[in-house]
């Protein structure tokens, strides 16, 4: 029983971070049709910025939202100054499909290099602000403690905010309309280019939160070459694909499925099988249900 509870808690805490990552991939995909491989680098940069802010202010609780705002600004900056020009000039033929991939992969390399240049290549420690010692109930020690609980609650709160913005506000309506049919949105008076930048900004904030929470909830160590962040990108992407790549609730659902399946494998089978299972899951979804669980079959046609 305690093993099952652990599996559930491990799954949900991993899922909460995958969900943030998946949401940022989905937002960028919906607004500009770009799979943003640089998201891993942007999240890593945000974690470093979080580290820098914590060491200057000494306060994690101020640093987290600040780093998210900076992450949003950086992401908007990339969209505005890099992607917009790129997509405008390479919008036809095979290069239109390849250019964003090369550009975001290249950007990933640039960001890692810049991080190494500023903070060096050694290990940097972003300390957890809360205890990671698991809660105790009688004889059993749970897998998560105050830090883990905070991560889950914070992500759930962020998801609620995103849901309210998208479902209940006029800006959310503009975001959804621009993603679905840019031409119609524009004819309706929506400045689609601005909305695209906003989509990237929200993605940047979500990615920043993912980067910081992943770090403090894990070992706290950061390196520019961090494998952990590359995997975060892969898992976020798999979660997004399971959910249909277009759908925000789908991305969250995908993250929960992925998190629980991987936790199950880790606890009951073997930790070494985690990546293999993750890719089998991705392939299975792509073959059996390529539109994902909450994506629309018709795709995107006005």
């Amino acid at each position: 029983m305690s093993q099952f509870l652990d599996m559930f808690l491990i799954g949900i805490s991993a899922a909460s971070i995958y969900a943030l990552m998946a949401i940022s991939m989905v937002l960028v995909w919906r607004s500009t049709r770009v799979v943003n491989f640089a998201q891993a680098g942007m999240a890593l940069l945000s974690a470093y910025i979080g580290y820098e802010l914590v060491s200057r202010t000494g306060n994690f609780w101020i640093s987290l939202p600040l780093a998210m705002i900076l992450g949003a600004a950086f992401s908007a900056f990339i969209e505005f100054f890099l992607m917009r020009t790129l997509l405008k000039h390479s919008n036809q033929g095979p290069i239109a499909a390849i250019a964003p991939i090369i550009a975001t992969l290249g950007l990933l390399g640039v960001i890692r290099a810049v991080i190494g240049f500023i903070w060096g290549h050694g290990d940097v420690q972003l300390e957890a602000p809360l205890s990671k010692v698991g809660y105790k109930f009688g004889d059993t020690t749970l897998f998560i403690g105050p830090m883990g609980l905070f991560v889950i609650c914070f992500v759930v709160a962020l998801l609620l905010v995103v849901t309210i913005v998208f479902q209940k506000t006029n800006i959310g309506l503009a975001l959804r309309a621009s993603a679905y049919a840019p031409e119609i949105a524009q004819l309706s008076g929506i400045r689609v280019s601005g909305i695209r930048t906003l989509g990237w900004a929200i993605a940047g904030a979500a990615g920043a939160a993912a980067g910081i929470l992943q770090t403090v909830n894990g070992t706290g160590g950061l390196t520019p070459e961090s494998l952990e962040f590359s995997l975060l990108l892969v898992f976020g992407f798999i979660a997004a694909v399971i959910g249909g790549l277009e759908s925000l609730p789908g991305a969250v659902l995908g993250a929960v499925i992925l998190g629980l399946v991987l936790a199950f494998v880790q606890i009951y089978i073997s930790g070494t099988l985690v990546f293999i299972v993750a890719f089998i899951l991705l392939l299975a979804v792509l073959i059996l249900r390529p539109q994902g669980f909450l994506g629309s079959k018709a795709g995107r046609r006005a």
Partner: peptide, 15 residues
């Protein structure tokens, strides 16, 4: 409502 965007006064902040 999407067609009525020009009447929307709210920005993201004021929302």
């Amino acid at each position: 409502m999407i067609g009525a965007q020009k009447f929307a006064k709210t920005g993201l902040i004021s929302a």
